[in-house]
Design a protein around this nucleic acid. Structure first.
Length: 154
DNA sequence: GCCAACGTTGGC
DNA sequence: GCCAACGTTGGC
């Protein structure tokens, strides 16, 4: 069964445009260093799942478009790379702590769906984003997915 | 830049 | 296992 997710990224680090410039190519969603988000990546995110790509920590936070999961959770090797800014000395190849998935560009929204719009929509009041805003990998219901794609003009 | 929310660490 | 201190996230 297809599930839906919201992945957050700071566009200064990795943006939806960065993904859009490589259509059809596989991108690693690495660097997640939060246990609850890690559990989703390791245990629940599956090939074929839909992803809303959210831009955080900018003047007008918004969802920019969609992506698709093309590989389920596997160890995030950047945790074992001392040169990586996501290096974690507690993680090892034998006993990985952190996980990542691979995604591929989906579709760009015709207009970005801002956080303000999400907050204003009565049917989106239950979104995880609006209740536990700091979680970087979040579940999205099929109803929320449909509404948000509509708001984005898809 | 501020600050609230909240996750993590570490002493006990 | 509790909880205070501390660090980070992210909206504003």
């Amino acid at each position: 069964m297809t599930n839906y997710w919201l992945f957050k990224s700071e566009p200064g680090c990795f943006s939806f445009d960065d993904l859009a410039q490589r259509p059809g190519q596989t991108e690693q969603w690495d660097g997640v260093r939060n246990f609850q988000a890690r559990n989703f990546l390791r245990d629940q995110v599956q090939v074929g799942d839909g992803v809303l790509f959210y831009h955080s920590n900018i003047p007008e936070p918004h969802i920019a478009g969609t992506a698709w999961v093309v590989r389920a959770g596997y160890p995030d090797w950047t945790a074992c790379d001392p040169a990586s800014e996501h290096f974690d000395p507690k993680s090892s190849a034998d006993n990985p702590i952190w996980y990542m998935v691979d995604v591929r560009y989906g579709e760009a929204f015709r207009r970005p769906v801002t956080l303000a719009e999400l907050k204003a929509h009565p049917l989106l009041a239950g979104m995880v984003l609006l209740q536990r805003s700091r979680l970087s990998i979040q579940t999205v219901t099929p109803e929320e997915w449909t509404i948000i794609l509509g708001l984005g003009g898809l």
